[in-house]
Design a protein around this nucleic acid. Sequence first.
RNA 1: GCGGGCGUCGUAUAAUGGCUAAUAUGCCUGCCUUCCAAGCAAGCGAUGCGAGUUCGAUUCUCGCCGCCCGCACCA
Length: 454
Amino acid sequence: MEEKRTTLEDIVSLAKRRGFVYPGSDIYGWESGLYDFGPNGVELLNNIKKSWWKANIYDRDDYVGIDSAIFKHPKVWEASGHVGGFSDPLSECKVCHTRIRVDKELGAVGVTADEKMSEEELNRLFDENRDKIKCPKCGNKDFSDVKPFNLLVKSNLGDFTGEDKRPVYLPGEACQGIYLNFKNVVDTMPVKIPFGIAQIGKAFRNEISPRNFLFRTRELEQADTQYFVRPNENKEAYERIKSDRWNWYLSLGIKEENLRWKQHDNLVFYASDAWDIEYNYPSLGFDEVEGVHDRTDYDLTQHMKFSGVDLRYTDPVTREKYIPWILETSMGMGRIFLAVLSDAYTVEELPNGESRVVLKLSPELAPVKYAVSPLLKNKPELVEKAREVYQILKKKHGNVMWDDNGNIGKRYRRQDEIGTPYCVVIDFDTLEDGTVTIRDRDTTEQTRVAISSL
RNA sequence: GCGGGCGUCGUAUAAUGGCUAAUAUGCCUGCCUUCCAAGCAAGCGAUGCGAGUUCGAUUCUCGCCGCCCGCACCA
C-alpha cells in the first residue's frame, strides 16, 4: 500500500476546520505571522505546557518557575545585545536582487565594520568602498543603500509625548525575564547552585518573512529553562539536560525517527556549545524545535555591567563569590505544537476502501479526553442516562465532549480528527446493567465496561 | 524585502463582463437511525480590501493586504 505523504497544507486545513488554529485577525483579512488558537488548540497547547512544566519543575527538586512581565526596562535589551546586535545591515544588488551583509562584505575587503555601528556610519564606510565590493552572484557593483533590519518590536509604553525618546521593546526572547529575576530567586527561595529557573513566556520578532504556518511567526511563545552551575562545571549538567529534553519528546509520543540532534556549526562568541533538537516537519523537513545552549557566564555578566547590580552568587559553604554559568533550553511552543500535531496526523485505509484521518495524540495531550454519546438521540431514556455519564466524566477528566450529532459513525470520525482517545456510548444495555461501550480511537475496537469503572 | 505564482462559503473544488455565483463536505435545526461519515427536510455560509475602466466588475487594470514557491534572513 502506497502511503501519501502528509503535507503542511493537510495540517493547516485540519487545524482550521477542527478548531485548533485560526489565522490571526481573520475577519480583517489576516495579519501576517499571527495565529490564534481555537477551542481544541488551546487545550492541546495547555496540555503540552502542563507536561513540560511537570517534567522540568515538579519531577525535579532543583528547578523553580517564574512568570515575568512582558514589558521590561529598555536597558534589558541593550544589555542582551538585541538593540545593537539583533539587526543586520543589509544592502541589495539592484541588478539581481541578491542581498549582502554589509558588515561582512566590508570585513572581507579589510575595512573594520560591525553590526553594532550606526546606519550612517555603515553607509559612509560602504560608500567609500563601493568600488571594491561586487555582487557575489552577478558581479555588478550597483547596490542600494544600507538598511538595518532590527527584529525587535518597539512600543510606546509610558511615552505620552509620541517623541519616541525612550523606546520600550517587546521581548525578542522570553528568557531575559529569568536573568532579571536570578537575584530575586536566590534571595527569597531555598535554592542553591546548581539549580534552574523555568518560564513559559511570549516573545515578539519583526521577522522579515514569517512563513510556514506556526513555524515562524511574529509573536511566539517560548518555554525556557536556565540552569545555573559553578563556572566550568557545565559539562555533566549539559549532558544530563540534553538527555532529559530528548526523553521528554519521546514521552509525548513523538516518533523517534522524526527527531534528531544537530550541533551548531558556528557558535556565538560567548557560547561553549549549542545543540538543537530538530523535528521532521511535513513539507519542511528537519528543522529546529528547541535549542540547548551552553552559554557560560555571558548573560549575567552583561546584566551586571548594565544594571550595576552585583549578580554574583555566594557559595553558602566556602563563601566564594562567582558569576554562575548558564545552561539554557529554549523551545518554541508553536514549533512543538506543530510537531505534535504533525506527528499525530495519520491517514488510515479502512477495509471498506475509505480512509479516515486520525490524530494519534497521546491521551495526556488530547484536547478532548472522552466523547459521550447516546446511541440514539430520539430515545429520551438513553439521552438522560448519557447526560449522567457525561457529567460524571466531566467532573473527573475535565474536557469531555457531548456529541449526539448525526449517527454514531459520524461521531467517531469527528472525534478521530480531534484526537479524542475514547468514545463512550450509552445504549439499551446500559439501562439494564450499567455498562457502556468504550471505543478506542486507534484500534476502533469496542469494549464493554461498567460505568463505575470508567 | 526581491522575483514568480495565487486569492470564490469553515474545508475542498466549479463557473461567469449582465438572471438568485454552483457542487460536495462541514456547521446548525427537525425527523429518522440498536455501533464506524446511511437517509429525508429546512437553515447558515464565499468572490480579501480599496480605487480605476465600463451602462454594468467576482471576472479587465492599478494599489494595498494575505497565502504559496524560490532568494535572502533566522541573534
